[in-house]
Each structure stands twice: as structure tokens, then as C-alpha cells.
Amino acid sequence: VSLEGFGWDHFFSQQLSTDERDFLVPARVVAMHRSSLVVTDGIDEYDVALGSNWFRGPTELRLTVGDWVLLGRGRDKVVRLLERKSVFKRFAAGSKREIQLIAANIDTLFIVTSCNDEFNENRLVRYLALAREVEIIAVVVITKRDLSNKSHQYVERARKVSGNSVIECIDARDADALEGVRLWTTEGQTVALVGSSGVGKSTLLNTLAGYQVQRTEAIREDDSRGRHTTTHRSIHRIEQGALVMDMPGIRELALADAAEGVASAFEDVETLAARCRFVDCDHQTEPGCAVQSALSEGQLEPERLQQFRKLRREEARNSASLSERRDTERRNTQRMRRLAKEREGTSHDE
């Protein structure tokens, strides 16, 4: 296997200087741990400890699975992070108010859900918004078709919120049923599997690979929820040549810095809003509101509009909170640099 087999192409190679080509080694991050990572140079894998500097900068510049880096010749130190094609991220839950990186340099996102009570349109549209924000292809994969006699209903529910995204309804254990899915798992392509615990991500990965890559467990019968079997993010190269990234189940998917993604995920609502008489229409009681007209004529479902409003408000609130945090960090950094210069000047005077 070469670097190209792990997704290396002109986009990354053109970023290297002449000295970097001569003295450094390109490698891809295939697994992340708390203070170290696993990388591959296309031939072997190496465990690389991360220095404290990699945890001090802005979150967006920290390393994540799928990144391309340059290693020293000893392959024991990360020298530089290369520019990314794409980065999949979310707004971290809790009071930290920061972005959490999920994966980088993804070509296709498999949004995995299932034909049971786990299926949730709100969660599905959040994943779609994140994918469209970073302009990567999203494929909705509905599993456990073999366990439901109403799989077609889940497909229709997904279609209502997925726009023109491809939808595959499958039995993840049946290799013969994955013909449509395999169209996206070609040589050098990176596919990320996201979704709740227990929807069949690890089963799908194992079937695509042709052997057991990840351990699997049955879902709980009382609430159709799964148990965490994938404990960390990792990339696996399957026989077809694709790089498949399995993710632990994400309990909460908050959005920030994703205004364009939300607009794209609700393209039907945005198209209607563009026809309103007033540019600043709130789609409530304003005259000439195309959105309200579509509601009254049955062309737009109230739940869809409610979902759009909720997600847009959340994204705006989280983005404002994130911007405030970044401003605070910027001021603190400037203050620390100023104090350092003052101390340096004082030492020279002495």
C-alpha cells in the first residue's frame, strides 16, 4: 500500500517545501488517543506521542483522525499539520463553549440510522447540515431492514428531510445487499460512519471489510438503543481500497459555525423565504409571506418549519458564544505576549 492508497494526492503534496520533501515524512493519522496518535506512512504504523504544544493552540488547529502530518525522519515526532480538505466538527456539549473536531479529510459521510425507535429526523438533519457546511457528500444509510416490515416508511421519512442525498436501506450483515453502499468505498476514498450507538456502524464496517474489524453488540430491546462498542475514532483500510472511519456514538450534536450548512439542509424553506415580499420576513404574520402561504396550501409541513427555526436559532446562539470565547482567548494571548515582552525588557535593563 502506498500513500496514495491512504488518500494522499496533489492537494497535500503541493503544500510541501523542497526541504520538507527531502527531510520529513508525510503520514496520515489513523487513530487518536488522549496524548498520542497512530499514524501510517503507507507502509507501517507508528505510535507518536504528542507534545504539550499541540494542546495549547486553538481547537481547530489540533490534530484529529484523518489529518495529514509531516513527521521527523525518526517518525517519532509531528513537525507540521497540513492544510485540510475538510474537517467534520461539532459544538462541544457543556460549559466549555468550544469546537470539538471529529474527523478530517473526509470524502463521504455515511449517516447511519436504523429501522426502529432510534430513527430521528432531527438528528438526521443535524448531520446533513454539518456535512453540507464542509461540502462533503452525505449518504443516509438505514440499517436493520431485515428486522422491520415497515422499512419503506423509514425511507420516506428520511427522504422528506434529506433533499437530494442518496438513501440506502440495508441489512448491514448481508454483503450482497451493500452494492449501493460500495459505490462510495472505492480506492483511496475516505468514508466516515456516524450515528448513534447500536445502529449498526461496526456491523457495516465489518461486512464491508469482509472480516471482524470492530466488536459488535445487540441493541437493548426496551428502547432500541445501543451500547458503545467503538471506543475511539480510527481508520480502517478495507479490501476494496477505501479508508473507512468508525466513530463512537455521538449523544449530542450541537451546531456552530454552520449557518450555510443549515441553509443548505433546509433548501426547501430557504427557497420559499426568497419569494417573500419583505427581505426581513419572520414568516409569522407578515403580508406576502411565501412560507406561510406554503403552510396553508400544504406544501410545507409545520414540523419542518419548526425544525428549521430551532436549528437556525441554536446555530446562531452557539456561534455567538464561540465567537465570544475566541475573542477572550485572543485578548488573553495578546496580554501574555505583552507581559513576556515587558519581562524580557526588564531583564535586559538589569
Rank of each mutant, 00 (worst) to 15 (best):
A103R: 00
L208D: 01
T113Q: 04
T108Y: 00
S86H: 07
P287W: 10
F278H: 03
P287T: 07
D246R: 00
S162L: 02
Q153T: 15
T113G: 04
S148G: 04
L253I: 09
R335W: 14
D22H: 15
M245C: 10
H33S: 15
K160L: 13
E60F: 08
M245R: 00
L178D: 03
R331D: 08
S202I: 09
D174A: 14
T203F: 05
N318Y: 04
T333Q: 14
R56G: 13
V262G: 05
F278D: 00
L50H: 08
D176C: 13
E121A: 05
T231C: 04
D246S: 02
S224C: 10
F110T: 06
D176A: 13
E314G: 03
V69S: 06
V65K: 04
D76T: 12
F6V: 08
C289K: 01
S13T: 11
I106L: 11
E315Q: 07
A254R: 13
T186G: 15
F12G: 11
F23L: 00
E179A: 15
Q307A: 08
A242S: 01
H33D: 06
E98V: 01
L193W: 02
A103S: 09
S296E: 11
R84M: 06
T186Y: 15
I102E: 00
R225V: 05
A209W: 11
I250N: 02
N122H: 15
S162P: 12
A158F: 02
L70K: 09
L147Q: 13
S162I: 06
S197L: 04
I238F: 06
D246M: 00
A259R: 07
R337G: 05
L178R: 04
E60Y: 12
F6K: 01
I235Q: 02
E221S: 14
S224D: 14
A129S: 11
S36Y: 08
T59S: 14
V112W: 00
A290C: 02
V262F: 10
R343W: 12
A340L: 11
N318R: 01
V161I: 14
T271C: 07
Q292K: 11
L311Q: 05
H348Q: 14
V181S: 09
S293H: 13
T108W: 02
G180Y: 04
D47L: 13
L147W: 06
T230R: 02
R326M: 11
T186R: 15
I250A: 02
E156V: 08
E329D: 07
K144W: 05
S196P: 09
L124V: 08
